[in-house]
Amino acid sequence: MTEYKLVVVGAGGVGKSALTIQLIQNHFVDEYDPTIEDSYRKQVVIDGETCLLDILDTAGQEEYSAMRDQYMRTGEGFLCVFAINNTKSFEDIHHYREQIKRVKDSEDVPMVLVGNKCDLPSRTVDTKQAQDLARSYGIPFIETSAKTRQGVDDAFYTLVREIRKHKEKMSKDGKKKKKKSKTKCVIM
């Protein structure tokens, strides 16, 4: 069974824990209790493949930012979460993405942009803004509501699919490099 290491990042209060708990335990946590770091595991079937999701729910508070490099190193894919009623959390996505790329030393890291709290009427981040940002990053965008469960499975499952595509691409690139290195030079 394939294991996928997913990391949920975003500013404090955007609903990272609520999304994760909704996926794992099928219930909505409405009281806000700032996370330092929590880890969850769940076995699911995605596109006919049974897999184990190892999900790291991270601290959004700035005082825990020193811990970010460590979990970013171990993560295979990242859910970059903002709240649709919090423009600052949307603007912060850029910083999370840049930090992930720096730590992973790669421009090509599996990510999904997630606009959470889409059940709320007080939207300050337009869907088109988020779609445009995701398009500019070359990553999928999904709106979710941890409260109603809308888009929750889709967000995590899409990230797994992005990781699969990335692994497939990397193995193809690896095979191309191996083929090239088999060419021999004969000096007579």
Score class of each variant (00 low, 15 high):
E3I: 09
V9F: 14
G12H: 12
G12V: 10
G13R: 07
G15Y: 04
L19Q: 14
L19P: 00
T20K: 00
I21N: 15
L23N: 15
H27A: 10
V29N: 10
D33T: 01
T35H: 00
T35G: 00
I36C: 00
I36S: 00
S39E: 04
Y40A: 00
V44W: 11
I46M: 14
G48M: 08
E49V: 09
T50R: 11
C51S: 08
L52R: 15
L53Y: 14
D54Q: 14
D54F: 11
I55P: 01
I55A: 14
I55L: 07
T58C: 02
A59Q: 01
Q61P: 03
Q61M: 07
E62N: 07
E62W: 03
E63N: 06
S65H: 07
A66K: 08
M67C: 04
R68K: 05
Q70S: 15
Q70V: 12
Y71P: 15
Y71D: 11
Y71W: 14
G75E: 04
E76T: 11
E76G: 05
E76M: 10
G77I: 07
G77M: 05
L79V: 08
C80S: 05
V81A: 06
V81G: 05
F82M: 09
F82H: 11
A83S: 14
I84Y: 14
I84R: 09
I93F: 12
H95Y: 07
Y96L: 13
Y96N: 01
E98D: 05
I100P: 15
K104S: 14
K104N: 15
S106H: 11
E107M: 13
D108P: 03
D108S: 11
D108T: 03
P110T: 04
P110Q: 03
V112E: 01
N116W: 00
C118F: 10
D119P: 07
S122V: 08
R123P: 08
D126F: 06
T127C: 08
K128P: 07
K128M: 07
Q129D: 14
A130R: 13
A130Y: 14
D132H: 05
D132I: 05
A134R: 09
R135Q: 08
S136L: 12
Y137L: 09
G138R: 15
I139D: 04
I139Y: 12
I142V: 10
I142L: 06
R149V: 09
R149L: 12
G151R: 11
D153T: 07
D154M: 06
Y157F: 08
Y157C: 11
E162S: 06
K165S: 05
E168D: 04
K169E: 08
D173Y: 11
D173V: 05
K175I: 12
K176F: 04
K178C: 08
K180L: 06
K184E: 07
V186A: 11
I187N: 15
I187E: 15
